[in-house]
């Protein structure tokens, strides 16, 4: 009975998750002139939409840009967050509660509010149309969440271990680096994936802070190219969605075990 309902649940999970994607996959292989046709299934599988998407879009460049921005965002936000989370987890100091609250408050401000005043700031700093500008914008938005996650992970690791290392002559930093950090690594990896995914598909900042293709990432690039004023090609859009999604899913397949293990080592408990 229970096993049956679990299997039913698993089936529902799969259908809900994959059905829209599979339909997109099928549409992407349907010749454009059959997409709006009566028959729901294509007469033959066609690669035209992929060819079109590839030709119309500087896809390799967008991929590279997205990887660079998401990679650097992950590195920067994790570095800042480890440091901050360690501080929150291991020290008791004046203003600690207020600063934790401050993180939440910062998270409250919508990107829609920030983009307009950020534009002149980015411009003054010469950060428009630059990787650094996007990385800073993304990292800032990823940091509060990462700090929360990591604080939870560090809290879950007993202090005694560090203290033992310090008794053996390690500096507090050394103790942290050699004892706590390795133990928290699965959690750090899970947090990193959150940061990476956020940046991978962030839209508004990229829209505002890029005008050229040079550093533009996938979500905005695809929209610019695939929603031409006179022409929206559903086949090509669906081909693009497949192209964008598959590499990330493949990455997850590889990292999945670490990710879930990492997540469980210090669940966010509020």
């Amino acid at each position: 009975m229970l096993a049956a309902s679990i299997r039913l649940g698993a089936a529902m999970v799969l259908i809900w998750t994959l059905a829209p994607f599979l339909w997109a996959l099928l549409t992407s292989f349907t010749p454009e002139n059959e997409i709006t046709g009566e028959a729901r299934l294509p007469s033959h599988l066609s690669f035209d939409n992929y060819v079109y998407a590839w030709r119309a879009t500087p896809l390799p460049l967008y991929f590279l840009n997205t990887l660079i921005v998401a990679g650097l965002t992950t590195a920067l936000s994790i570095a800042c967050s480890i440091s901050a989370a360690y501080s929150f987890s291991r020290y008791r100091f004046a203003g600690r509660g207020a600063l934790i609250l401050g993180l939440l408050v910062i998270y409250l401000f919508p990107a829609t509010l920030l983009v307009i005043p950020l534009f002149p700031i980015m411009r003054t700093l010469g950060l428009l149309d630059s990787y650094l500008g996007l990385v800073l914008a993304h990292a800032t938005h990823a940091v509060p969440f990462c700090v929360w996650m990591l604080t939870g992970y560090f809290d879950a690791i007993p202090r005694d271990l560090e203290e033992a290392a310090e008794l053996d002559g390690a500096t507090p930093f050394g103790a942290f680096r050699r004892v706590t950090l390795p133990l928290a690594m699965p959690g750090v990896a899970a947090t990193a994936i959150f940061a990476f995914l956020y940046s991978w598909q962030e839209y508004l900042f990229v829209l505002f802070f890029t005008t050229g293709e040079a550093v533009r990432t996938l979500p905005v690039g695809l929209q610019v190219f695939l929603s031409g004023e006179l022409d929206v090609r559903w086949g090509a859009i669906n081909a693009q969605s497949v192209i964008t999604t598959v590499p990330v899913v493949a990455l997850f397949m590889l990292l999945q075990r670490h990710f879930v293990r990492g997540l469980t080592s210090g669940a966010l408990k509020g």
């Binding site: 999970v13 998750t17 994959l18 829209p20 994607f21 995914l197 991978w200 598909q201 839209y203 996938l218 979500p219 905005v220 695809l222 929209q223 859009i237 693009q240 969605s241 964008t244 999604t245 990330v248 899913v249 997850f252």
Partner: peptide
């Protein structure tokens, strides 16, 4: 399960 999450929101 993570497929939708890996799909950019515009897509």
């Amino acid at each position: 399960v993570l497929v939708p999450w890996a799909t950019p929101s515009v897509i």
